[in-house]
């Protein structure tokens, strides 16, 4: 039984064979400078951060993004952003594995540069190929419950459904479908994209998501470090509330039982 006043060691969660103490993952884009990024990531207590392969200078180990992550022992989750199809994504994943010495990959395929909607068909194809090639695949996907099961079936180690379009800060507009995904999943569900406020992150955790990934809301905040702390607290409190068990929401009070009270006299 989980005590509700503290984060317990057994509340850690696993992706593949890696144990995470924090359920908040972060991105590395959009920060004003790498020092601010490093400070924000530290304040978030995040243990894994994603970075775009195309943005990293693979020939230079002193790269602005990689250096602070490595110094703080934050697990690298390279992503395939910029890929328009399965072949692009596989190319990017292989390049990332070679250059960054990790077989973890956040699979992102968005052929539509405007809303950055993930392509479900190409994502499933790439996921299967990458799993077979030995990758730990975390696919960014639309909040589509069937697709989540299909990605799980081909061996993905987690699924990352969107709350709303990337960078939109709109919150969990896909919540009805996220609930189904969470209910059905046998792998961790990480809500990614659209989380614009700590309350959104707390809500995702209350719904039973295993983790959330937040980038824009921290990086673009006037005070990214304070915002990162706020997210850390929100994720923890949302998780705690989920474990404690939320009360049922009713639209009206149920004081009496007018339809079944006759049974008392039977």
């Amino acid at each position: 039984m989980m005590k509700s006043n503290d984060r317990q060691p057994q509340d850690c969660f696993m992706i593949a064979d890696h144990k995470f103490g924090s359920r908040l993952f972060t991105g590395t884009g959009k920060f004003a400078n790498s020092e601010l990024m490093a400070d924000a990531l530290k304040a978030s207590q995040s243990e894994m951060a994603t970075m775009s392969l195309k943005r990293v200078d693979l020939h230079q180990k002193s790269d602005d993004i990689l250096r602070p992550l490595m110094a703080n022992a934050i697990k690298l989750l390279p992503n395939t952003s910029g890929a328009k199809n399965a072949k692009d994504a596989i190319f990017a994943a292989q390049l990332a594995r070679e250059a960054l010495a990790t077989n973890w990959i956040k699979l992102e395929i968005h052929p539509d540069p405007k809303y950055l909607m993930p392509d479900p068909i190409e994502t499933l194809m790439a996921a299967e190929a990458l799993v077979n090639d030995g990758f730990i695949v975390l696919p960014y996907m639309h909040a589509d419950p069937v697709l989540a099961k299909r990605l799980e079936d081909v061996g993905c180690h987690a699924v990352m459904p969107l709350g709303a379009p990337i960078g939109s800060n709109k919150g969990l507009v896909s919540q009805d479908f996220l609930k189904i995904i969470i209910e059905q999943a046998n792998v961790p569900v990480i809500v990614d994209a659209g989380i614009g406020a700590p309350s959104h992150a707390a809500y995702a955790m209350e719904l039973g998501a295993d983790a959330v990934l937040v980038n824009t809301a921290m990086a673009v905040s006037p005070d990214p470090v304070a915002m990162a702390r706020a997210f850390a607290m929100a994720v923890e409190s949302g998780r705690m509330a989920y474990l404690a068990g939320l009360g049922q929401v009713n639209n009206h009070a149920i004081a009496t039982s007018p339809l079944t009270s006759f049974l008392d006299g039977v």
Partner: peptide, 20 residues
């Protein structure tokens, strides 16, 4: 650019990424 609170992005593409 740095003084204005912005990060200079020197690289934001990977040669070969969309040539498939």
């Amino acid at each position: 650019i740095k003084d204005k609170g912005y990060q200079v992005v020197w690289k934001d593409w990977q040669m070969g990424l969309n040539q498939h």
